[in-house]
Design a protein around this nucleic acid. Structure first.
Lengths: 225, 225
DNA sequence: GGGGATCCTGAGAGCCCGCTGAGAGAACCG
DNA sequence: CGGTTCTCTCAGCGGGCTCTCAGGATCCCC
């Protein structure tokens, strides 16, 4: 679940970044409107959080441009109370929701979740592979009756695998989708986390839902192993 | 497209029945859990709409029982807001989606459609030559029902041959396509790997899908040998 | 039928790939 | 501010895969 945050104030951007990641989102940050539009063109975001006050092309521009391009990704606008544009304007721009600075992170998170719920009418709450299940909305998962306790990163990894059952996904793809789009680290991190996951969802049950395809990547068995 | 509605309240059952029929579904109604399980055992439903509050065996029981029996039919649970079980529980039971009463028929219909879309198998194009098959996305292959265990290089070779059935491909071409474009080694490697492949896909089955065209290259028989 | 070219195959060496344990650093929580 | 959790790095290891090589088998042409 990827979110784009368009915000030039470093501290706000960093805080939102951290918070959303902790909730299992994959976050990209853009400091100005031009960069934002570039990212939007090449990526498929679930939600865009957009500050109106930006250097260069402002949020107003960005929102109009992407709507004109036929992109319907939900946009949540951040406005300063004393800003040039007020809350009412935000909705006219094509935004789906707005939030006035300063805001609490909890509220932001709630609004984002609301947008996600709203924008995904074809939402299918529970992903399944055999008796293995995961509910993205409730942020829970389990095997049969047994609940599984996963860290955010493990959860994101399992969610992505469950969305692509019986398909081999490469480590590069996993890095891009579950980690960052331009992750520059050691792909070994994927192996490490697949290992963690296996020790939670497979080993205790004597199953093997996650298969290694040597030289290619990993595959989640649609029957749960 | 058959739907089972498990609901004891006559007026709700009748309304849902009427509505779904108008949308082209074939509908069965069960007033209690026991009847529901009986119907499920003998019929193949596309979706099951299940009220949790039932006389006798309740929805909780029904859902767990059919999941335990390995039935993966999508289940949409109806819960009363003040009920014994809440929405969150529904997911643990093995349900795929839930809806809180009272609900509008439009919403119910949308949710059912979503479940149908998701349970529809997203088929990836599978390459075939007779009973020999290879699924590039899942990275699996086999002969008939029997699964074949190939190494990455063997898999790549077979995939390329299957993409060019009944065509003679030279060793140089295979080296360029399956190995590196600028492969500088001994072309004998192709012979070696064709040998490996034959011992896995042909010899055990008494077939000969891969033919040698002396002086030219190899050809894969489109009928699988 | 002989001889050369081509193909097949068994054995084995090296190495790449993926797995895992240990641990550092950062974030979070009381 | 101390403890805990989570993320990520690193290095070692073990196994299987890739590839080389050489000798034998097969084919084709003269």
């Amino acid at each position: 679940m990827r979110v784009l945050v368009v915000e030039d104030e470093q501290n706000i951007a960093a805080a939102v970044d951290r918070g959303l990641r902790a909730e299992g989102f994959s976050v990209d940050i853009a400091e100005d409107g031009a960069k934002a539009l570039g990212l939007i063109r090449h990526n498929d975001y679930a939600v865009i959080v957009l500050d109106l006050m930006l250097p260069g092309r402002n949020g107003y521009d960005v929102c109009r441009t992407l709507r004109a391009a036929g992109i319907t990704t939900p946009v949540l606008i951040l406005t300063a109370k004393d800003g040039e544009y007020d809350e009412a304007d935000a909705l006219d721009l094509g935004a789906d929701d707005y939030l006035t600075k300063p805001f609490s992170f909890v509220v932001l998170l709630a609004r984002i979740r609301a947008l996600l719920r709203r924008s995904a009418p074809q939402r299918s709450p529970v992903l399944r592979a055999g008796d293995l299940w995961l509910d993205p909305a409730a942020h829970r998962c389990g095997r049969g009756d047994e609940r599984l306790d996963l860290t955010p990163r493990e959860f994101g990894l399992l969610e992505f695998l469950l969305r692509n059952p019986d398909t081999v996904v490469s480590k590069t793809e996993l890095l891009a989708q579950v980690w960052d789009a331009w992750f520059e680290g050691d792909p070994n991190i994927v192996e490490v986390y697949v290992g963690y996951l296996r020790r939670k969802i497979d080993t205790p049950f004597g199953r093997s839902a996650i298969e290694t395809v040597r030289g290619i990547g990993y595959r989640l068995d649609a029957k749960g192993g």
